[in-house]
Amino acid sequence: MAPAVEVQDVYKSFKNVRAVRGVDLEIENGRFAALLGPNGAGKTTLVEMIEGIQKPDQGEIRIHGMPWKGNEQRLRHIIGLSLQETRFIDKLSVWEILRLFASFFSLGKNRVNEILELVGLEDKRQAWVVNLSGGQRQRLALGIALLNHPRVLLLDEPTTGLDPNARREIWSILLDLKKGAETSMVLTTHYMEEAEELCDHILIIDQGRVLREGSLDQLLADETREKIIEFTLDAAGLSKETVSAGAPFSIEWDSFNARGTVILDHIESQLPQFFEFLHQKNLHMKNMECRKKTLDDLFTELTGRRLHE
């Protein structure tokens, strides 16, 4: 059986921006994948090409084995999507908007009622869209995406701007869907917890390229032994050169906050070495924390930038 989504060597440029530069990706049936990347990474451009809304300059995209060209009507019936930002008609009620979109799929009232229950908007059915909160609007958008029992669900930042509770509510809807194993999903996000929580497959993308991909375990596998030591010194204003000169490992140093980071792969032997080093330089530690490596660290390592600044 053909994979749910196949993307082969896809490129897309705008006037002077190369938004997507050679992406390959394959998502098996029933799997959930996350595109994780900072602002401007090319996530929206990539999913919109998968959604058939934008056309790639080069490369191929197939959904359940079908390219967009020549299969548009069929594909429109089997995918569900939410755009990064859509504002629905302000003066229609939640019920009316859902009815309208349901009619595009030849679906009736029953399905609309199911969706209202699924996304928890039953008591807002008569409310006008303009009066919904941000989280309720996101749930409405998700409800519309789910109307047609999509086999492929494409969500562009479904939880951006939501508080942690609202985010968890959306996650639980998606996790229920995952249990059904009939839907494949691609989701874009800035939140690594979201990718970790929902997705089997994570693609870290930046500047239009996939930097690394795999399951969470695979991504962090080589690095599981590595530990991160974050520390602060009682010596504000020291320059990076002063702190790291002669160090046995590389030290990331933020002189303004007097905070540093080192990555150790053999913590038992290296931690004493590190203390010894500080002692020799007559530097006094104020605070220290040792933790496992996360996606965020991996991202910083791959790009030299943090996912959230």
């Binding site: 058939g52 809304i53 429109r76 755009l83 859509t86 504002r87 008609i89 595009f104 799929f105």
Partner: peptide, 16 residues
Amino acid sequence: DKRSKKLLRRMVATPM
């Protein structure tokens, strides 16, 4: 208005 709200884009992403 619908175009700038991306509503047209959302609507044509259905079989409408």
